[in-house]
């Protein structure tokens, strides 16, 4: 990478940070418990809108993994999410009425919160429908992973988005609050992913999975990106560029080995496709607040009205992280 590119990326990073600082005015603290954060706490950051039904399981899942504090931006929910979050002892929640799209899909808001509270902490940035799986997550807490990453001088950890879906129609089994969503959406695509290197940011661009297979069979280039770097030992000079797909400085995107080896990586189980999905898709189409003019939701709405089955004969049923590692979707790397 030449000096010029490197300089331009630096300018870009600064720009995102300034933008994030500016956007902090759009946030109003509803319940700010951030003074409880201790110096080595594991923090989770999230933006959400109308996800009340998912929250109980979501919070508990990450509490059990060892997240010490949740910092959440509520984008004007009207289903009681905000009130529910404000009651939680380990959650700080901010409210914003402003445009999700104009905050670059929440990235600006979270960049600000991370700038303010995440410095020198391991920060996990996930949506309420994303569940982190990492090697040995059934026997070792998240802290074991972050300690190991610290000891190995690794600053960022990759976890690819793995779309989970139910067998049968999406709306066949209703999701109840507190339920493990993977009880319903327990299937995934094991081996149809494509990846290429993004020369500018140095990250891998991964596409594929059921969304590409069912919603974009004729325009796979439009299928959503699945690469994510949700866990970073944050520094206030860092900035996420686009969701958690890319982060600057670009060294943090180097989560893959180029010389034949495997680095340790995890998976974000993406339990998007529950019965709540079609309502959500319809709403998002109205609001047009999602990426690339909500093209994703447009494609969903079309395909879903025709044939709402994502499941196929070769779908794989989720068992545990070891299965995902054997399938080659994630790796233990040299963590043993």
């Amino acid at each position: 990478m030449g000096f010029w590119t490197s300089y331009r990326l630096r300018i870009q990073r600064r720009r995102w940070l300034v933008r994030a600082l500016r956007k902090r005015r759009e946030l109003r603290a509803v319940s700010d418990r951030s003074n409880k954060i201790k110096s080595d706490d594991l923090l989770l950051f999230s933006t959400l809108r109308n996800e009340h039904v998912r929250l109980p399981y979501f919070l508990n899942y990450y509490r059990e993994q060892g997240i010490n504090h949740f910092l959440i931006v509520d984008n004007d929910s009207n289903d009681g999410s905000l009130e529910y979050l404000a009651e939680q002892p380990d959650v700080s929640v901010w409210h914003s009425k402003h445009s999700y799209k104009k905050s670059r899909f929440g990235v600006d808001w979270l960049n600000w919160l991370q700038f303010r509270y995440g410095h020198d902490h391991w920060c996990l940035v996930v949506d309420p429908d994303e569940f982190l799986i990492y090697p040995f997550c059934d026997t070792r807490p998240l802290r074991a992973l972050t300690d190991w990453l610290d000891a190995s001088s690794i600053k960022s950890f990759s976890a690819m988005l793995l779309d989970m879906y139910p067998k049968g129609r999406l709306d066949e089994q209703p999701y109840r609050a507190g339920q493990n969503p993977m009880e319903i959406a327990s299937w995934f695509d094991a081996g149809n992913y494509t990846m290429e290197k993004n020369a500018k940011f140095g990250n891998l661009w991964i596409q594929g999975g059921p969304r590409s297979r069912v919603f974009f069979p004729h325009e796979p280039e439009k299928a959503p990106a699945l690469n994510k770097i949700p866990l970073v030992k944050w520094n206030r000079r860092y900035a996420y560029v686009s969701s958690t797909h890319m982060v600057l400085p670009r060294g943090l995107n180097q989560v893959y080995d180029e010389w034949g080896g495997e680095k340790a990586s995890g998976i974000l189980l993406h339990a998007k496709f529950l019965d709540t999905f079609s309502i959500k898709a319809a709403e998002e189409l109205q609001r047009k607040q999602h990426y690339a003019a909500s093209i994703e939701y447009l494609a969903y709405a079309q395909s879903l009205s025709e044939n709402p089955e994502l499941w196929c004969k070769w779908s794989e049923k989720y068992i545990n992280w070891r299965q995902l590692e054997i399938l080659g979707l994630m790796s233990k790397g040299n963590w043993a």
């Binding site: 976890a159 992913y193 290197k197 891998l204 989560v255 893959y256 080995d257 034949g260 680095k263």
Partner: peptide
């Protein structure tokens, strides 16, 4: 194997 953390 080509995957998120192995791209030789």
């Amino acid at each position: 194997l080509f995957m998120q953390s192995r791209f030789p």
